[in-house]
C-alpha cells in the first residue's frame, strides 16, 4: 500500500518542478544566439541584431495579447515609441543610470498600454483592431509633431539644430558588442517574465478566458483584472523595447513610428509565431535582420514588405502557429522518434 501511494504522488511533484526547468530554455537559447552573433557579426550586422533582439520584446507582448487572449492590438509599435520617448526624456533630463530610464520607459508604456487596452474590456475582434489602429494613428500624428527628446529644454526636450545630444549607453556597455550583450540580457529577463506568466497563474486564467468568459468566471477568474494585466504587461515589454532601441544609436526618429509599423509588427508576430516564446525572437530578426540582409545584397528595402506579405499569407493559410510552431513541431517529432526507439 505504502509504496503504491508514493508512486502515485510522483507525477504531481514532477509537474511543479518542471515550471522553472522549462523557463531555463530562454536563457539557454539566448546564450547560444548571442554567442554565435558576437562571433560572426560585423558592426553593421551587430547593430541590426541589437535592434532585432530589442524589438522581440515588443513582439512577445503582442504574442501574449493575441496568442493568450485572441486580442488583436494594432498599436504596439506606438507603445514602443512611448517607451523610447520616456527613456530619452528621463535620460536627458536627469542623467540617471540607463537602467532607470529603461524602467521608466517600461512603466509609462505599461500605463499607456493599459489605457489603450480599455476599449478591449468591451470590444473584441475587428472593432478592437480598428480602435487600436486609430490610437496608433494618433500617436503617429503626435510623435511627428513632437519628435523625440534630444537634450533640449522644456517638456518636449527638443534642441534646435545645435546642441543635439545622444543618450549615452549604459556605463557597463559602451561598445557595440557590449551593448548587444546588454540588450540580450535585458531581453532574456523580459522574455522569461513573459514566459513565466504563460506557465503560471496568469497563463491559466488567460487560457480559461480564451475558452469563454462564462467558463472563466465559473472558475473564479476576474476577467477584467486578467485582461487588464495582459495589456499592462504587453505595454511594459513594448516600453522596454523602445528604451533599448533608443539607446542603440542614442536617439530615435519620429518618422519611424507610423501606424503602418504597428500593423507590420502584428503581421510579423504571426509569421514568427505567437504560441512559442522564440517566435518573438524570430519576428524581431525578420523585422530587422532581413532588411539588413537585403541591403547587404543591394536589393531595395521595399522588397521586404512584399516578402512579409507573402510570409503572412503563408502563415495564415498553412501555419497558424508561425515559424516557431513549425520548429516546435519538428523538435517534437524528432523527440518522439528518439524516444520511440526506447519505447516498448
Amino acid at each position: 500500500m505504502a509504496s503504491e501511494h508514493v508512486a502515485q504522488v510522483v507525477p504531481r511533484s514532477m509537474s511543479i518542478a518542471r515550471l522553472p526547468m522549462s523557463l531555463l530554455q530562454v536563457p539557454a537559447t539566448m546564450i547560444v544566439f548571442a554567442g554565435v552573433t558576437v562571433l560572426f557579426a560585423n558592426s553593421f550586422w551587430l547593430s541590426a541584431a541589437t535592434a532585432a533582439v530589442a524589438l522581440s520584446l515588443s513582439v512577445v507582448g503582442l504574442a501574449i495579447l493575441y496568442g493568450q487572449l485572441g486580442l488583436v492590438s494594432l498599436c504596439q509599435f506606438a507603445l514602443v515609441g512611448v517607451g523610447g520617448w520616456v527613456a530619452l526624456r528621463v535620460g536627458h533630463a536627469f542623467h540617471p543610470p540607463f537602467e532607470i530610464s529603461l524602467l521608466a520607459g517600461g512603466i509609462v508604456a505599461s500605463i499607456v498600454g493599459l489605457v489603450f487596452g480599455i476599449p478591449a474590456l468591451r470590444l473584441r475582434g475587428l472593432y478592437l483592431a480598428l480602435v487600436t489602429l486609430m490610437l496608433a494613428g494618433a500617436f503617429q500624428i503626435v510623435i511627428s509633431a513632437w519628435g523625440f527628446p534630444d537634450g533640449g529644454p522644456g517638456f518636449l526636450g527638443r534642441a534646435d539644430g545645435s546642441g543635439r545630444a545622444m543618450l549615452p549607453r549604459p556605463d557597463l556597455a559602451q561598445g557595440a558588442v557590449a551593448y548587444f550583450v546588454y540588450v540580450c540580457v535585458a531581453a532574456t529577463v523580459g522574455l522569461m517574465i513573459a514566459q513565466w506568466h504563460k506557465l503560471a497563474k496568469p497563463g491559466r486564467a488567460w487560457a480559461l478566458i480564451r475558452k469563454g468568459e462564462t467558463v472563466a468566471i465559473s472558475s473564479g477568474v476576474s476577467v477584467l483584472v486578467f485582461k487588464a494585466w495582459a495589456f499592462a504587461l504587453s505595454g511594459f515589454l513594448a516600453g522596454l523595447s523602445g528604451a533599448l532601441l533608443a539607446d542603440n544609436v542614442g536617439q530615435l526618429d519620429g518618422r519611424a513610428f507610423g501606424a503602418f509599423e504597428s500593423l507590420n509588427l502584428f503581421a510579423l508576430a504571426i509569421v514568427g509565431g505567437v504560441y512559442n516564446w522564440y517566435g518573438a525572437l524570430i519576428a524581431g530578426l525578420l523585422l530587422r535582420a532581413l532588411p539588413a540582409l537585403l541591403t547587404d545584397l543591394g536589393i531595395d528595402g521595399y522588397v521586404t514588405i512584399g516578402i512579409f506579405g507573402v510570409a503572412l499569407f503563408h502563415a495564415l493559410a498553412t501555419a497558424p502557429a508561425g515559424i516557431a510552431g513549425q520548429i516546435a513541431g519538428i523538435v517534437a517529432r524528432v523527440r518522439i522518434r528518439i524516444m520511440g526507439g526506447r519505447a516498448p
Binding site: 507525477p11 504531481r12 509537474s15 497563474k201 491559466r204 486564467a205 487560457a207 472558475s219 476576474s222
Partner: peptide, 13 residues
C-alpha cells in the same frame, strides 16, 4: 493545459 493545470486554474483563485 495539463490535467493538473486545469484544476489549478480554479484553485488559483
Amino acid at each position: 493545459l495539463t490535467v493538473a493545470d486545469n484544476l489549478a486554474a480554479i484553485a488559483d483563485h
